[in-house]
Protein backbone atom coordinates (compact mmCIF):
# COMPACT_ATOMS: atom_id res chain seq x y z
CA UNK A 1 0.00 0.00 0.00
CA UNK A 2 2.81 2.36 0.85
CA UNK A 3 4.38 1.54 -2.49
CA UNK A 4 1.15 2.39 -4.29
CA UNK A 5 0.97 5.64 -2.38
CA UNK A 6 4.53 6.47 -3.41
CA UNK A 7 3.71 5.72 -7.04
CA UNK A 8 0.73 8.06 -6.91
CA UNK A 9 2.96 10.67 -5.33
CA UNK A 10 5.36 10.28 -8.25
CA UNK A 11 2.54 10.71 -10.72
CA UNK A 12 1.39 13.87 -8.97
CA UNK A 13 4.93 15.18 -9.00
CA UNK A 14 5.44 14.45 -12.69
CA UNK A 15 2.04 15.57 -13.93
CA UNK A 16 1.83 18.95 -15.56
CA UNK A 17 -1.92 19.30 -15.05
CA UNK A 18 -4.33 18.40 -12.26
CA UNK A 19 -4.38 14.62 -12.18
CA UNK A 20 -7.79 12.99 -12.20
CA UNK A 21 -8.58 9.76 -10.41
CA UNK A 22 -9.59 8.30 -13.78
CA UNK A 23 -6.16 9.04 -15.15
CA UNK A 24 -4.47 7.40 -12.17
CA UNK A 25 -6.77 4.41 -12.60
CA UNK A 26 -5.80 3.99 -16.22
CA UNK A 27 -2.08 4.39 -15.53
CA UNK A 28 -2.14 1.91 -12.68
CA UNK A 29 -4.45 -0.35 -14.65
CA UNK A 30 -6.82 -0.74 -11.76
CA UNK A 31 -10.51 -0.26 -11.20
CA UNK A 32 -10.09 0.35 -7.52
CA UNK A 33 -11.21 3.93 -7.30
CA UNK A 34 -11.75 3.79 -3.60
CA UNK A 35 -8.17 2.83 -2.76
CA UNK A 36 -6.81 5.60 -4.95
CA UNK A 37 -9.12 8.05 -3.30
CA UNK A 38 -8.05 6.92 0.17
CA UNK A 39 -4.39 7.20 -0.75
CA UNK A 40 -4.93 10.71 -2.07
CA UNK A 41 -6.64 11.68 1.17
CA UNK A 42 -3.79 10.10 3.11
CA UNK A 43 -1.23 12.09 1.09
CA UNK A 44 -3.20 15.27 1.67
CA UNK A 45 -3.18 14.66 5.41
CA UNK A 46 0.51 13.80 5.48
CA UNK A 47 1.50 17.02 3.74
CA UNK A 48 -0.68 19.00 6.08
CA UNK A 49 0.38 17.33 9.32
CA UNK A 50 4.05 17.47 8.39
CA UNK A 51 3.61 21.08 7.37
CA UNK A 52 5.24 20.49 4.03
CA UNK A 53 6.01 23.34 1.65
CA UNK A 54 3.39 22.06 -0.75
CA UNK A 55 -0.07 20.68 -0.37
CA UNK A 56 -2.36 18.51 -2.44
CA UNK A 57 -4.96 20.75 -3.97
CA UNK A 58 -8.21 19.39 -5.28
CA UNK A 59 -8.64 21.55 -8.31
CA UNK A 60 -10.49 21.50 -11.64
CA UNK A 61 -11.69 17.94 -11.11
CA UNK A 62 -8.23 16.58 -10.29
CA UNK A 63 -5.37 16.70 -7.83
CA UNK A 64 -2.29 18.88 -8.05
CA UNK A 65 0.71 19.59 -5.86
CA UNK A 66 0.86 23.29 -5.16
CA UNK A 67 3.10 25.41 -2.97
CA UNK A 68 1.54 26.77 0.19
CA UNK A 69 -0.13 30.14 -0.23
CA UNK A 70 1.41 31.35 3.04
CA UNK A 71 4.83 31.03 1.38
CA UNK A 72 3.81 33.31 -1.48
CA UNK A 73 6.21 36.00 -0.39
CA UNK A 74 9.12 33.69 -1.18
CA UNK A 75 7.71 31.58 -3.98
CA UNK A 76 6.96 34.68 -6.02
CA UNK A 77 10.63 35.55 -5.98
CA UNK A 78 11.72 32.30 -7.54
CA UNK A 79 9.62 32.93 -10.61
CA UNK A 80 10.84 35.33 -13.24
CA UNK A 81 7.36 35.70 -14.60
CA UNK A 82 4.37 37.03 -12.84
CA UNK A 83 0.78 36.24 -13.68
CA UNK A 84 -0.92 38.42 -16.23
CA UNK A 85 -3.00 40.88 -14.35
CA UNK A 86 -6.75 40.63 -14.32
CA UNK A 87 -8.25 44.09 -14.28
CA UNK A 88 -11.31 44.94 -12.26
CA UNK A 89 -13.55 44.98 -15.36
CA UNK A 90 -12.11 41.58 -16.29
CA UNK A 91 -12.84 40.18 -12.83
CA UNK A 92 -16.37 41.58 -12.93
CA UNK A 93 -17.00 40.09 -16.35
CA UNK A 94 -15.52 36.81 -15.20
CA UNK A 95 -17.68 36.82 -12.07
CA UNK A 96 -20.82 37.34 -14.16
CA UNK A 97 -19.85 34.50 -16.48
CA UNK A 98 -18.93 32.19 -13.60
CA UNK A 99 -22.24 32.73 -11.83
CA UNK A 100 -24.65 33.15 -14.71
CA UNK A 101 -23.30 30.78 -17.34
CA UNK A 102 -24.31 30.06 -20.04
CA UNK A 103 -24.53 33.78 -20.56
CA UNK A 104 -24.87 36.12 -23.53
CA UNK A 105 -22.65 39.11 -24.10
CA UNK A 106 -25.76 41.29 -23.97
CA UNK A 107 -26.60 39.92 -20.50
CA UNK A 108 -23.12 40.76 -19.27
CA UNK A 109 -23.32 44.26 -20.68
CA UNK A 110 -26.77 44.75 -19.24
CA UNK A 111 -25.51 43.89 -15.77
CA UNK A 112 -22.34 45.95 -15.97
CA UNK A 113 -23.86 48.78 -17.96
CA UNK A 114 -20.80 49.01 -20.21
CA UNK A 115 -19.50 47.52 -23.41
CA UNK A 116 -17.64 44.33 -22.54
CA UNK A 117 -16.45 43.14 -25.95
CA UNK A 118 -12.76 43.80 -25.34
CA UNK A 119 -12.78 42.22 -21.90
CA UNK A 120 -14.51 39.12 -23.26
CA UNK A 121 -11.94 38.92 -26.03
CA UNK A 122 -9.06 39.05 -23.55
CA UNK A 123 -10.61 36.40 -21.29
CA UNK A 124 -11.23 34.17 -24.32
CA UNK A 125 -7.68 34.65 -25.60
CA UNK A 126 -6.32 33.66 -22.21
CA UNK A 127 -8.48 30.58 -22.14
CA UNK A 128 -10.23 31.56 -18.93
CA UNK A 129 -13.63 31.54 -20.58
CA UNK A 130 -14.94 29.69 -23.61
CA UNK A 131 -17.79 29.74 -26.04
CA UNK A 132 -20.36 27.19 -24.95
CA UNK A 133 -22.50 27.38 -28.04
CA UNK A 134 -25.07 29.56 -29.70
CA UNK A 135 -28.45 30.58 -28.49
CA UNK A 136 -31.56 30.13 -30.57
CA UNK A 137 -32.20 33.84 -30.86
CA UNK A 138 -32.10 36.22 -33.80
CA UNK A 139 -28.49 36.47 -34.93
CA UNK A 140 -27.65 33.24 -33.13
CA UNK A 141 -25.51 34.96 -30.48
CA UNK A 142 -22.82 32.94 -28.72
CA UNK A 143 -23.08 32.04 -25.06
CA UNK A 144 -20.08 32.05 -22.77
CA UNK A 145 -19.00 29.91 -19.88
CA UNK A 146 -15.88 29.43 -17.80
CA UNK A 147 -13.17 26.94 -18.77
CA UNK A 148 -11.24 24.37 -16.80
CA UNK A 149 -8.40 26.89 -16.79
CA UNK A 150 -10.62 29.18 -14.74
CA UNK A 151 -10.92 26.52 -12.05
CA UNK A 152 -7.16 25.96 -12.08
CA UNK A 153 -6.36 29.66 -11.86
CA UNK A 154 -8.73 30.34 -9.01
CA UNK A 155 -8.06 27.20 -7.02
CA UNK A 156 -11.55 25.76 -7.41
CA UNK A 157 -12.54 22.12 -7.33
CA UNK A 158 -15.58 22.78 -9.47
CA UNK A 159 -18.11 25.52 -10.12
CA UNK A 160 -20.21 24.39 -7.18
CA UNK A 161 -17.42 25.31 -4.79
CA UNK A 162 -17.93 28.98 -5.59
CA UNK A 163 -19.73 30.71 -2.71
CA UNK A 164 -23.28 31.65 -3.59
CA UNK A 165 -24.01 35.26 -4.48
CA UNK A 166 -26.36 35.45 -1.54
CA UNK A 167 -23.69 34.25 0.89
CA UNK A 168 -21.22 36.71 -0.52
CA UNK A 169 -23.63 39.54 -0.05
CA UNK A 170 -24.56 38.49 3.45
CA UNK A 171 -21.05 38.16 4.72
CA UNK A 172 -19.75 40.91 2.51
CA UNK A 173 -18.33 44.03 3.99
CA UNK A 174 -20.54 47.02 3.54
CA UNK A 175 -18.91 47.87 0.24
CA UNK A 176 -16.94 45.67 -2.05
CA UNK A 177 -13.41 46.85 -2.38
CA UNK A 178 -12.80 48.66 -5.64
CA UNK A 179 -9.23 47.51 -5.77
CA UNK A 180 -7.57 44.62 -7.60
Amino acid sequence: MDKLKAIIESLLFASDAPLTIDKIKSILETEDRKTINNLLVSLTNEYDSQKRGFFLSEVAGGYQLRTRPEHRHWTRKIRLMKPARLSRPALETLAIIAYKQPVLRSDIEHLRGVDSGGTLHTLLARGIIRVLGRKDLPGRPVVYGTSKRFLELFDLRDLNSLPTLKDLQDLGQEWPNDSK
Partner: peptide, 13 residues
Protein backbone atom coordinates in the same frame (compact mmCIF):
# COMPACT_ATOMS: atom_id res chain seq x y z
CA UNK B 1 -18.71 41.05 -4.25
CA UNK B 2 -18.23 38.02 -6.47
CA UNK B 3 -15.41 39.72 -8.37
CA UNK B 4 -13.80 40.66 -5.08
CA UNK B 5 -14.10 37.06 -3.90
CA UNK B 6 -12.33 35.90 -7.05
CA UNK B 7 -9.65 38.52 -6.50
CA UNK B 8 -8.80 37.25 -3.03
CA UNK B 9 -8.75 33.56 -3.90
CA UNK B 10 -5.41 31.78 -4.03
CA UNK B 11 -4.46 32.59 -7.59
CA UNK B 12 -2.29 30.15 -9.45
CA UNK B 13 1.15 31.63 -10.15
Amino acid sequence: YAAEDLAVRNRLD
